[in-house]
């Protein structure tokens, strides 16, 4: 494996600076966010690099759990801020985190104990990257699904209420919006699986190959990860959208858009 020197990274950084200069010159207006995001990449990744190094050095379930919880909280917050109309009173955070917790953790634990079978099963070198990849993708599905749900419910308020007025049950009145929201959450992972290897080489596999692994071994891991991501994303999106569609109505099956902000 060829090790990267700080100079190598500096060269790559110059490319980003050039791109930033270009957007500034063209008055695109995203120069500052671009630079801040690039800086965050450096700081956050360096930090997580050292954290991982420390956790890998002291294999203990407590450290793994702690790191997993921090990741979950950050993902939950990210789901919430990505909503254009979110539930008031912390419900978006609660529903996003709950559904991600249930789906991501069950999929990851299953993969670690049954499929990978490392010893101990929570070996951080496997557990943390797997969890991170599944959580990151599930987070996308959950936030896309919830966003579509709340957005559509607000846009189609009259259509939903027209059905309520005629005696339809609330969950029937929102059924088409609910399935549409789940579909929206699933599309990215379906596209990723369909394009994998043809259009794009998935990042995880590329990383392993760059690090000197045998491509076929890397591909096997990538397939595993893709499947875990697909399962996690779909379970997470379905449960988040389901919880959200319940929260949109009260016990008298009234559409409660006042619960959105």
């Amino acid at each position: 494996m060829i090790l990267l020197s700080p100079l190598d990274l500096a060269l790559a950084a110059i490319l980003v600076l050039l791109a930033a200069a270009l957007t500034h010159w063209m008055r695109v207006g995203e120069t500052r966010p671009l630079l801040i995001a690039a800086l965050r990449t450096v700081v956050q990744l360096l930090l997580i690099g050292y954290v991982l190094k420390a956790v890998f050095g002291n294999v203990h379930w407590l450290w793994v759990t702690l790191l997993a919880l921090v990741m979950l909280i950050v993902a939950g917050r990210e789901v919430t801020v990505r909503q254009s109309r979110r539930f008031s009173g912390g419900w978006s955070l609660a529903m996003g985190s709950t559904s991600m917790f249930v789906s991501v953790f069950s999929v990851t634990v299953l993969a670690l104990t049954v499929v990978i079978d490392a010893s101990p099963w929570y070996t951080p070198q496997y557990a943390i990257p797997l969890l991170g990849m599944i959580l990151g993708n599930t987070m996308n599905g959950v936030s896309l699904g919830l966003d579509r749900l709340t957005q559509s419910a607000s846009d189609k308020r009259e259509i939903i209420e027209a059905q309520l007025m005629l005696g339809h049950r609330a969950q029937d009145a929102i059924a088409s919006i609910r399935t549409d929201s789940i579909r929206v959450g699933m599309i990215p992972i379906i596209n990723a699986m369909a394009a994998a290897g043809l259009v794009s080489l998935p990042g995880m596999m590329t990383g392993q190959i760059l690090a000197g692994s045998d491509p076929v071994e890397a591909v096997k891991y990538q397939i595993l990860v893709m499947f875990l991501i697909a399962a996690g994303t779909i379970f997470g999106t379905v449960s988040a959208v389901w919880l959200g569609s319940r929260r949109l109505f009260d016990e008298r099956q009234r559409l409660r858009l006042d619960r959105l902000i």
Binding site: E158, E161, M165, G167, H168, R169, A170, R252, Q253
Partner: peptide, 16 residues
């Protein structure tokens, strides 16, 4: 609620 709204039918000013 569905029973109630079937019995107490509301016709809104605009139909959807």
């Amino acid at each position: 609620p569905p029973e109630w709204r079937t019995q107490v039918g509301l016709l809104p000013a605009e139909s959807f």
